[in-house]
Design a protein around this nucleic acid. Sequence first.
RNA 1: GCUGGAGUAGCUCAGUCGGUAGAGCAAUCGCCUCGUAAGCGAUAGGUCAGGGGUUCGAGUCCCCUCUCCAGCUCCA
Length: 671
Amino acid sequence: MSQTISVRHDERTTDLPDGSTAIQALKALEAVRGQVVAARVDGAAWDLDRPVPDGAEVEPIYADTDEGRAILRHSTAHLMAQAVTDLFPGAKWAIGPPIEDGFYYDFDVERPFTAEDLEAIEARMHELARERQAFVREEVSHDDALAEFADQPYKREIIALVDDGRIVSEVDVAADAGDGDAAPTFTVYRNVRVGGDGSVEVAWSDLCRGPHVPSTERIPAFKLLRSGGAYWRGREDQPMLQRIYGTAWESRKQLTAHLEMLEEARKRDHRRVGRDLGLLHQPEELGPGLSIFLPNGALVRKQMEDWIRDETLARGYLPVYTPHIAKEDLWQRSGHLENYAELMYPGMEVEGASYRLKPMNCPFHIMAYTSRTRSYRELPIRISELGTVYRYERSGVVNGLLRARGFTQDDSHIFCRDDQVVDEVVACIEFARDLYRAFGLGEPSRVAVSTRPEVKAIGTPEQWARAEKALEEAAARSGYDYEVDEGEGAFYGPKIDIHARDAIGREWQLTTIQVDFNLPERFDLSYVGEDGAKHRPFMVHRALFGSIERFFAVMVESFNGAFPTWLAPEQVRVVPVAADFLDYAEEVGATLRAQGVRVHVDASDDTLGAKIRDAQTSKIPYTLVVGGAEAEAGTVAIRPYRGDQRKDVGLATFVAEVTEEIAARRTEPHG
RNA sequence: GCUGGAGUAGCUCAGUCGGUAGAGCAAUCGCCUCGUAAGCGAUAGGUCAGGGGUUCGAGUCCCCUCUCCAGCUCCA
C-alpha cells in the first residue's frame, strides 16, 4: 500500500496522499471551474468525497450540465423521500430517479398525497436542506442490504431483481457489477446530520447507486410539482404507488425560468387557446376524443391539408378516397381483429354483415393497389389520402386533439420492390424534414427506429430483421443521429418515429414511417416482374403530420395561436377610425380580398381603442387602421401583431408585401 | 382501464352554517362617432353535469353515472 497516489486531469498529473477524495484531486489539479456536483473518475460518475484510486483520470461534473443536473435531481429525490419518511411514518419507498427537467419518487403510503401534503413535504425538505446533511456512500454486502431494508419490500425486490440479473432501471439499481463472479456489492447512501460538536447521526438511508452531491445544502433550488398514481415497475398487474414529481436546478434563476416555462405551456394549451380563438369546439354531446373544427380552426387546418396535398402530388403520390367503414371480413384478413381489436369500435350489423369503423387506412389502400394487375414498371406506387380513422382509446388517455378517438392521418402506403425500400424510406424522412421546416418546427429533435415487439408481432424473425435493417440503413443515410427503441414497433412491422421540438422546447412525436412485409402476404399482393413471374411487393406506411389533429394542436401551442400569416384564419383586419371612413375600409378590404387575402373589415361602432384591442387579442397578423389621412392618400397604417407600426404605407405596397409573404409561406413575420 | 382531483351563464369565477342564483367579460339593444389594447347605459342569459337519496327545505350533505383535468399504462 503506497503512501501517495497519482491523479491526472487533461495533461496534468499530481501526487496526493492515499485516500484522497475526488474533490481533493480536482482541487489539486486546479480542474474546478464552476459549481461542481460530482466527479468522473476513469469514466465513472463518482462522489466528490469518495477516495479515488491511484492513477485515476479525474474530471469535474458541473451543476449546469445535463449530467450534473441529473445528479442534483437524484439527490433532491432522496431529500424528498427523507421528508416523506419523516411526515408519513411507515411509508415504503420504491424508486426515485432523475428525469428530464426533474425527478420523481414513488411511495407506498396509506392514502394518496394531497396538495397540502406536497406543501408540507416541500417545507420539510427545506428544513432538511438547511441541516446540511452529508450524503455518505457505503458499500454493503448483499445480506446486509437485505437486512437493512427488511421493512422495505420494494428495495428488497430490487435486490432480488439484481440477484436475477434483471435490471429495473439503470438509474436506480444499486448494484455495482464488474466484480467478476463475486456477489454484487450494493451501495447505500446515508443522509448524515453532523452536530456542532462533531457528532454524527444517520437521518435516513437509501439503497442507491449514486453518485450524489456531497451535502443537502448543495441543492440550490427545487420545487415539488404534482403527485399521482403510478404502477410499481410500470406494470398494470403491480400495486399502484403514489408518485411525487419535482424539479431541481443549479440556481434559483434556472428554477424560476423553468417554472415560467411550465406556466407558459399551461397558458398555451391548445384546448384553451382553441376555445379563446374560436378554433375548436369539444362539446360533451359528441363523446370523448371527438372534436369540431370551428371555421377559424378549419381555415388553419385547410392550409395544412393544402400543403400536404400539393407536396404529395409533387412527389409522385397518387390520391385516393376511401370509406370510413368496411365489412369485418376485411379486418379479419388484415389481422386487425386479431391484433388490434381492443382499439376498434364494435361492429355494426347491417343486412347480415358486420361492419367496422376503420382504425387504419392500410386495407383500403391495398384495395386500391389490387384493383388491377401491377407491373414492376409501375413501382413504387405511392397511394395517398387524408384518411380519418377511429380508435377506441382507453378513457384515461384521451387528451384534446393530442390523443383523440377520431383523427385524420396524412396517410400513404408505398408499394415497392425490395431494392426500393431504403430509397423510399429516405425520401419519407426528407419529406418530413421539409414539412417541419415549412411549419416552423426546425430540424427533427429525435429519430428513433422501433423494433419487434415482444408480444403481438406477426411475421417471422427473419422478416423483422430484414425490415429493421432497411429502416436503420435509411435512418443512417438520412444523416440524422438515430436511436433504437427496442420492442416499440407496430404489430405488423418496425418503424421510424420522428420527433420535433416546439417554440417552447417541448418534444412531440409526429411522423411515423413503417415497413410492412406482413400485409402484402395476407392480401397476397403481387406485381409482375421483368421475368414475367409474380413477385411480392414491400409496403411502407407513412404519416408525416402523423395526425392532422395532433399536428394542429402542436401548431396552436407552438405559435400560441399567433399563426404565421399564411396559416392564420384571418390574415388582415381593417379598422376604420370612425364610421365616416368605413367606405374606404371596405375598399381596402375588397382590394385585399381580390388578391386572395383572408380579410375582415371591422364595421362595429366600438371605439378605435376597443377595435384595436379586439384585433390584437384575436392575434391577427396585420391590423390596418384607416381614417381621413389614409383615405385621402390611398394609404394604410399597418399595425402588425408583432413588430413596429408603419404609417402612410401605400395600399398597393402593403398588398404586394402581404401577398408575397403568404405565397412564400413565411413562418416569420415579414420585415 | 387504474389512482386522485374537479364540474355553477358562451368564458373566467364568487356563492358563508343547508334557507330557493351572483359578478366581470362576451352577447343583444340604445346612446356616443371616436387616430392605435377595453366609452356609457340597459336587457337577456341557469334542469348549479345527469340521476337517486337525506331533509320542512339541497348549488351546498350522501350514493350512482357521465364528462373534464393530472399521473400511470397505452399511443398518431
